[in-house]
């Protein structure tokens, strides 16, 4: 049996690296006595795969993992058992059984949304957004593997929502992830700086979702499993 779970990893654990996250989930599976399946071979490991890597320094509202089990388990009881065993900063919010042929998260997740929480009273975000989206290109120095090459983020930025409240402002950006254009959050950060957002004003950044984008629509990996 295969399961796909959606979980939240809170700000307390934003410095956890991907491998550490795998360890936390693995250890939680063992504590919760979940009948996880093991890979064959000399050094067996749990058949667990995470979606796109959550960057160190960010917490995540909707992250995903797929897990293979040796016997059927009720999703509701899986959620309860795991949440009892997880550290309090991690919670499984939803979980569905998936087919063995369902393509892996890594293959299907092609976009993500990042949320920037700013101190209120900075620049006018509505006009910032309009100006931002009207640009034909947004070039940054690429981070990561192809370091310092010029990279145009604009084709990878699909949608921006802004929200003003009394206490803080919110920028929510839907961007491309994966093979075609991978927009990294630190590159987004650079582009925000370059377009007039004051670094000092950014209070928090987190990944608010991972999506499967079809045309103009964003589906959650729990909605699109085939």
């Amino acid at each position: 049996m295969r399961l796909r779970a959606e979980y939240r990893i809170g700000p307390e654990l934003k410095f956890l690296a991907n491998l550490d996250m795998m360890n936390v989930i693995g250890r939680t599976l063992r504590r919760a006595a979940i009948p996880y399946a093991l890979s064959e071979g000399f050094n067996p490991h749990i058949k667990l795969s995470l979606g796109t890597v959550l960057p160190v320094g960010l917490w995540g509202e909707k992250e995903y993992f797929d897990l293979e089990l040796t016997m059927p388990v009720e999703t509701a009881s899986f959620i309860v058992a795991m949440n009892n065993a997880f550290p309090s900063a991690i919670t499984i919010k939803n979980c569905i059984p998936i087919d063995n042929r369902t393509p892996s998260l890594m293959k299907v997740i092609n976009s993500a949304s990042y949320t920037f929480k700013l101190c209120s009273g900075g620049i006018n975000l509505d006009s910032w957004r309009e100006e931002f989206l009207s640009r034909k290109s947004l070039v940054v120095k690429s981070r990561g593997k192809k370091k310092d090459l010029d990279k145009d983020l604009r084709p990878g930025i699909f949608r921006i929502d802004v929200n003003n409240s009394q206490d803080f402002d919110i920028i929510n950006m839907w961007v491309s992830s994966g093979e075609t254009i991978n927009v990294r959050y630190d590159e987004l950060n650079d582009i925000l700086m370059a377009t007039g957002i004051d670094k000092q004003n950014i209070q928090d950044v987190y990944r608010s979702g991972n999506y499967i984008k079809h045309g103009a629509e964003f589906f959650s990996p729990l909605e699109q499993v085939n």
């Binding site: 693995g26 250890r27 599976l29 063992r30 504590r31």
Partner: peptide
């Protein structure tokens, strides 16, 4: 220890 930690 294994029940409490989940060590492998």
């Amino acid at each position: 220890q294994l029940e409490n930690t989940g060590y492998e």
